[in-house]
Simulated assay, not measured.
Amino acid sequence: MTDQETEFKRAQEYIQKAPSNGDTSNEDKLKYYAYYKQATEGPATGKRPGVFDLVARYKYDAWAKLGKLSKEEAMAGYVKTLEQSAPEWRKYFEQTTSKL
């Protein structure tokens, strides 16, 4: 596993496990979703969800906006979005590992 993949996995872990301050905007949530899907599945495929499933439609549109972004670029975008919304995220791992 590369350093970038390790950092991407840690960023995901932080988002899933760290205490939330409740400040994550819907726009940031869509960015995380889109970058994650791009990094794990590649460019958006399939048919765009219908008008009556707005949540799926917004998610698909956010993912499709990334176009042909590479896996590495998507992982970097995910981490960058986390750094903008929670710049202290790396400290979380320092604190949790020092308590063990």
Rank of each mutant, 00 (worst) to 15 (best):
K99V: 07
S20W: 02
A76L: 03
S25V: 01
T97I: 10
K9N: 12
A44K: 12
Y36S: 15
G67H: 01
M1G: 14
N21H: 05
T2S: 15
M1C: 11
P49D: 02
L66Q: 06
Y36T: 11
R90G: 01
A56E: 08
Y14K: 04
K9G: 05
A76P: 04
S85Y: 03
K37A: 13
T40H: 11
G50E: 08
D28F: 04
Q12K: 14
Q4I: 09
Q4H: 08
F93K: 05
D53A: 10
Q38K: 10
A11I: 02
S20I: 00
Q16I: 09
L66G: 04
Y60G: 04
V79A: 07
G42V: 05
K47W: 12
Y32F: 15
A34F: 05
T24D: 11
E27I: 06
Y35H: 06
E83F: 07
K29A: 15
R10P: 08
T81F: 09
K29Y: 03
Y35R: 00
E7H: 02
K65W: 02
L30R: 09
P19M: 03
K91M: 09
A18G: 02
D61F: 02
L54H: 11
T96C: 02
Y32G: 06
P43K: 12
Q84G: 13
T2N: 14
A74K: 05
G77T: 01
Q4T: 02
S98V: 03
P43A: 09
D23Y: 10
W63M: 09
T97M: 09
A11V: 03
G22K: 01
D23N: 12
K17H: 13
T96A: 08
F52E: 06
E83M: 09
L54Q: 14
Q38Y: 06
E83G: 12
D3W: 14
T2F: 04
T6E: 15
E83C: 07
L69S: 12
K59P: 04
G77N: 01
E83N: 14
L54R: 14
A64K: 07
A62M: 04
L69N: 07
Q4S: 07
A11P: 04
G22C: 01
S70R: 00
E7M: 10
A44N: 04
Y60K: 02
E41P: 11
N26I: 10
Q95F: 06
K80C: 10
D3L: 15
S70V: 03
R10D: 15
P19H: 03
P19L: 07
F52A: 05
K37T: 10
T81G: 11
T40V: 15
N21W: 01
L66Y: 04
G50C: 06
A18H: 01
